[in-house]
Lab assay of single mutants.
Amino acid sequence: MAAAAAAGAGPEMVRGQVFDVGPRYTNLSYIGEGAYGMVCSAYDNVNKVRVAIKKISPFEHQTYCQRTLREIKILLRFRHENIIGINDIIRAPTIEQMKDVYIVQDLMETDLYKLLKTQHLSNDHICYFLYQILRGLKYIHSANVLHRDLKPSNLLLNTTCDLKICDFGLARVADPDHDHTGFLTEYVATRWYRAPEIMLNSKGYTKSIDIWSVGCILAEMLSNRPIFPGKHYLDQLNHILGILGSPSQEDLNCIINLKARNYLLSLPHKNKVPWNRLFPNADSKALDLLDKMLTFNPHKRIEVEQALAHPYLEQYYDPSDEPIAEAPFKFDMELDDLPKEKLKELIFEETARFQPGYRS
Rank of each mutant, 00 (worst) to 15 (best):
D336R: 05
I347R: 02
Q315F: 14
R353N: 12
S213D: 02
T110P: 01
L28H: 11
S246F: 13
I133F: 01
D321C: 12
D124C: 12
Y64K: 11
T26S: 00
F228W: 12
G85P: 13
N271V: 11
R194H: 03
T181Q: 07
S122R: 01
Q315Y: 09
D111Q: 05
E186A: 06
I209K: 03
E350C: 15
T351A: 02
G32S: 01
L155G: 04
Y36N: 00
R277I: 00
M38R: 10
K292F: 07
S208A: 02
Q315P: 13
M98A: 13
H125E: 02
L121D: 03
K270A: 13
E220W: 03
F19W: 13
D318I: 11
T118S: 01
R67P: 12
E349M: 14
L222P: 02
I255M: 09
A307E: 07
I53D: 07
Q119R: 08
K207I: 10
I211R: 01
K55H: 10
Y64E: 10
Y187W: 05
R91F: 12
S213Y: 03
Y312Q: 02
I133P: 06
Y317L: 10
F168D: 08
I347W: 02
L244Y: 07
D88V: 06
E350N: 14
R77D: 11
H269R: 07
V273F: 12
K54N: 00
I90M: 15
S360K: 04
L107Y: 06
E345F: 15
N297M: 09
L308G: 05
K259R: 05
I217H: 01
P323R: 13
F279L: 00
V51S: 13
S122T: 14
G204M: 09
L150C: 10
Y128D: 06
N27R: 08
N158C: 08
F59G: 13
L258K: 12
L290P: 00
L107V: 11
V214P: 01
L76F: 13
F78H: 06
T181A: 05
Q119I: 13
H125W: 04
Y113R: 05
G242A: 06
K344A: 10
L244C: 13
R24I: 13
L264N: 06
D288G: 07
L76E: 11
E220K: 01
D179C: 10
D318Q: 13
L278N: 08
Y43T: 14
I103K: 03
D337Y: 00
N154L: 01
D235C: 11
C40Y: 07
Y113Q: 12
K55G: 06
K164V: 08
K48T: 08
K330M: 00
V101H: 04
Y312H: 09
Q236G: 03
L200N: 01
Q66C: 04
I103E: 05
R191E: 03
E33C: 13
C127F: 01
H232E: 04
V145Q: 06
E96D: 05
E60A: 02
E303F: 15
Q97K: 02
S223G: 07
A92D: 04
G16Y: 10
E186W: 07
R77A: 10
Q97Y: 11
P298S: 07
A35V: 02
E220N: 05
D251H: 11
A327M: 11
T94I: 08
S153L: 04
I86A: 15
D175E: 01
N87L: 14
Y131P: 11
P226H: 00
N82H: 09
P93M: 12
S29A: 12
M333F: 13
Y25T: 09
D251Y: 00
K138T: 10
P311W: 14
T185Q: 02
L116I: 12
I133H: 08
S153M: 09
I72Y: 12
Q132K: 00
I255P: 13
S266R: 00
N47Y: 00
K207C: 07
L244R: 15
F329E: 09
S29E: 09
H147K: 03
E71H: 10
N27Q: 14
G357P: 14
Q66W: 03
Q355E: 08
R79H: 12
P298G: 12
P356I: 15
R24C: 06
R24A: 13
V273M: 06
M108A: 09
L290K: 04
K231G: 04
I240Q: 09
N224L: 06
R70Y: 10
I217S: 03
L294K: 05
K203E: 01
K99R: 06
W212Q: 02
I256A: 09
K330H: 14
Y317V: 15
R277T: 09
T118R: 08
C254V: 09
E305Y: 14
D337C: 15
S41I: 14
E250D: 04
L346G: 07
R148D: 03
G230W: 06
C166F: 01
I103R: 03
V273Q: 14
A3M: 09
I74H: 05
R359H: 10
R172Y: 06
D111Y: 00
D283T: 15
K344I: 09
T118Q: 10
R148Y: 02
T185M: 03
A52G: 13
K259L: 03
S223T: 01
A195S: 01
N238L: 04
E250H: 14
S153F: 06
H299L: 00
T68P: 00
K340G: 01
F296G: 06
A42P: 07
F168N: 07
L313Q: 01
M13P: 02
A219C: 07
I240Y: 08
I243K: 15
Y30M: 09
K117N: 00
L75C: 13
I243T: 11
Y128Q: 06
A219P: 01
P229D: 08
L335W: 05
L115H: 14
P339T: 01
E250P: 12
I209T: 05
A2V: 15
E60L: 09
D235W: 06
A143F: 13
R225F: 13
P196R: 01
N276K: 01
A143M: 12
T160C: 06
L107T: 04
N123L: 09
L267P: 06
L107A: 09
I53W: 08
I53K: 07
F129D: 04
G136N: 06
I211W: 01
L112N: 11
D175Y: 00
K55N: 00
H310E: 12
I53R: 05
F296P: 06
P356T: 07
L308P: 03
Q249A: 08
N224F: 07
D177E: 01
L137M: 06
C40G: 13
H299R: 07
H125Q: 01
G230C: 00
Y36P: 04
I347L: 07
W275L: 00
N271Q: 08
D175A: 00
Y205D: 02
A174D: 07
N45P: 14
N276V: 13
L170R: 06
Y131S: 11
T68M: 09
R301V: 04
T160Q: 10
S284L: 06
E322H: 15
K99W: 13
P176N: 08
E345K: 01
L258I: 11
D111W: 09
E349R: 10
I347M: 06
V46K: 14
A189S: 01
W275H: 07
A286D: 02
D288T: 14
I209D: 03
D88A: 11
D321I: 14
L267D: 14
Q132E: 08
N238V: 10
T206Y: 04
N271A: 13
Y316L: 10
R67C: 13
W212F: 05
Y25Q: 05
L157V: 11
Y139L: 05
D124Y: 00
Q66K: 00
D175C: 10
D111K: 06
C127M: 06
A2C: 15
R225C: 03
L265V: 10
T160V: 09
N158H: 06
Y358V: 10
N27G: 07
R301Y: 03
D124T: 12
K114Q: 03
P323W: 15
S41V: 13
F279A: 15
P323T: 03
N154W: 05
H141K: 08
S142D: 15
R172C: 04
K138N: 00
I86R: 09
Q249Y: 13
P356A: 15
N281W: 11
C216M: 02
D88H: 10
L134W: 03
I209N: 01
L265P: 04
Q119D: 13
T185F: 03
E341F: 14
E345N: 07
P176D: 04
A325E: 03
L346P: 03
L338T: 08
V304W: 11
L294V: 07
S122D: 13
L313S: 04
I74W: 03
N276A: 09
L107N: 08
E322Q: 14
I56L: 08
D336C: 13
I255R: 06
E314Y: 15
A35R: 06
A219Q: 01
K55T: 11
L289K: 04
K48H: 07
L130G: 06
A260K: 05
H299M: 08
M293F: 13
G136W: 00
K54R: 03
K300Q: 09
G32F: 07
L134P: 02
H269N: 01
N123M: 12
Q97L: 00
K151G: 03
N253A: 12
R359L: 09
G34R: 01
